[in-house]
Amino acid sequence: MARFSPEHLETAREIIARYPRPKSALIPLLHLAQEQDGYVTDDAMRHIAELVGVTPAEVLGTCSFYEMFKLHPVGTYLVNVCTNISCMLCGGEELLAHASERLGVAPGGTTPDGRFTLEEVECIAACTEAPCLQVNYRYVTNVTNDDFDRLIDDLAAGKLDHEVPPHGTLARVRQHIPADRTAGIVPVAEAAVEPAWMHANEAPGAGGDA
């Protein structure tokens, strides 16, 4: 698993076609790669670089900027426990300590069975429901230690499969844009030519500034 599979490659091409420049598809393609492999592999970054016409270093530069892209394998379930100020006041740190004990790994670690990765995060914007956490970016709020244990049990038993897909899958519904509504640029070789609409609304005359 590494480069895009044939189906994912087709999706990748469709995604690229949505943008006026192939490079703009970089982030959606990184998500697609993460969906495929659970994290972003080096080979996937090389493949993306080929598809959008940049160097692998440029893909890595973008990819490594964002916390949500993982460059190393993580568990099927990525559990982010918030310890920022509201959550901290409402027991977020204690929750993290409990989670750490329950899963047997320190924050940042992955359980030996590869199921859970525990992370400490900054504010995830659910302060009114503190303390809170996310599992694969799905919110669980007002979490007590018991809630947490139940959550882990349910995830492990597969009871939440309908709600929480494995790490990397952002959404199970993929939006398709009909071909006639895409920006329509696929081959990298032609990307140097700016699409006509980019200059459609330009002020007439040279050097004019409003």
Binding site: V54, T55, A57, E58, L60, G61, S64, F65, Y66, E67
Partner: peptide, 10 residues
């Protein structure tokens, strides 16, 4: 024109 080095991480 050889962007083979880049800022990595944040």
């Amino acid at each position: 024109g050889d962007p083979l080095i880049h800022f990595i991480n944040r």
